[in-house]
Design a binder for these strands. Sequence first.
DNA 1: ATATATGCAAAGGATTTGCACGGTT
DNA 2: AACCGTGCAAATCCTTTGCATATAT
Lengths: 148, 148
Amino acid sequence: MPGQLKWRHRFQAHVSRWTVPREVILDLLSRTSKHMSVKEIYASLYKMYPGIGLTTVYRTLDLLVRAGFINRFPSGDGQNRYEFKSNKKKEHHHHLVCIKCRKIIDYSDFVDEELELVKKTEEILAKKHSFNVLGHNIEFYGLCEKCK
Amino acid sequence: MPGQLKWRHRFQAHVSRWTVPREVILDLLSRTSKHMSVKEIYASLYKMYPGIGLTTVYRTLDLLVRAGFINRFPSGDGQNRYEFKSNKKKEHHHHLVCIKCRKIIDYSDFVDEELELVKKTEEILAKKHSFNVLGHNIEFYGLCEKCK
DNA sequence: ATATATGCAAAGGATTTGCACGGTT
DNA sequence: AACCGTGCAAATCCTTTGCATATAT
C-alpha cells in the first residue's frame, strides 16, 4: 500500500500501478543530482527497504526511462547510469567526463550560443537525413583537475 | 612473420611487437567506415584468419584505443563499438543514432559554426573546471527515416 | 477478482583473467 | 634466448528471463 507521493499522478498517466519500489526509486533519483549505477541505486534502497530485488530495480528503471522520468546513459565502464530528468529547463546539462577517475561533471552554464546552435543543428539534421531528432548527448572528455 | 604494412612504423612508436593479429585488426578497421562491434570484427577476421582468438581481439582493440589509433564508444545495446580514427581532419564526424533500429549515421557536414563553437566551449570548460579537454562525443538521437 | 508487479534463481551476453605455448625481437 | 603476445577455458560482471507468489486496482 504505497504512500501518496508527488509523482503518483504524473506516473499513472503513463503506466498502471503505483507500487512501493516504483515510488522509492523515483523518489531517490529525484533527490540526487548524481549519476547513479544500478548497483548504487540498489545499495541505497536496500538500507531503507531491505527485501527489494535487484531485478525490480532493473525493471523499474526501464519503465522510468520509457515513461520519460529519467535518462539512461552508458558510463564507459560497462555499466549504465541513470539521472533524473528535471522538467525545469534550467537543469538541462551536458557532461564533462574524466577518462581516468571516471568522475562526471555536469555543466549547465552553457556558452550563450551553445543551446541555440544545438537547436539549429537539430533542425538541419532532421531535414538532411529525414531524421526525427528527440534529444542529444553531448560530452567532453579528458582529464580532471586531480588526474591531469 | 607479419607483413610490412603501412601502420607498422607508426605502431611501433607506441608498443613493442608487430604481430599478425595486430596487423589484420588495424587493417580491417582502417578500411571500413562502419562502427564495428567486437563480434563483427571477430567474425570478419575469422574468414581470412581462422584460429584468431576472441580474447586477442579484445586485447588488441584495447591496445589500439590506448595508442590512439581507434575510438571506442558504447553503442547503447551493451556492446562497445570501434571506429578507425582518421588523421584527416575532414573525416571527423558526429553521430546520429536511431533509438529503434540502432542505426548510426555519421555526419560531417557540420553547420558552419558547429566546430568553432565546440572549440570555444572546450576552452571555456577547461578554464572553468580546470579540466584538460581531450575530445568530445556529440550525438543526436531519435528516429530514422524508416523507424519513425 | 483479476491482471500486473515482485523476488528469487537461473540463464544470457560481453568482457576479463590465468596459464601454458608460440612467435618477435 | 628472453620476453611478449596468443589462444583456450574458466571466471566475472552486468543485465535479462522464467516462474510462483504477492499486491494494486
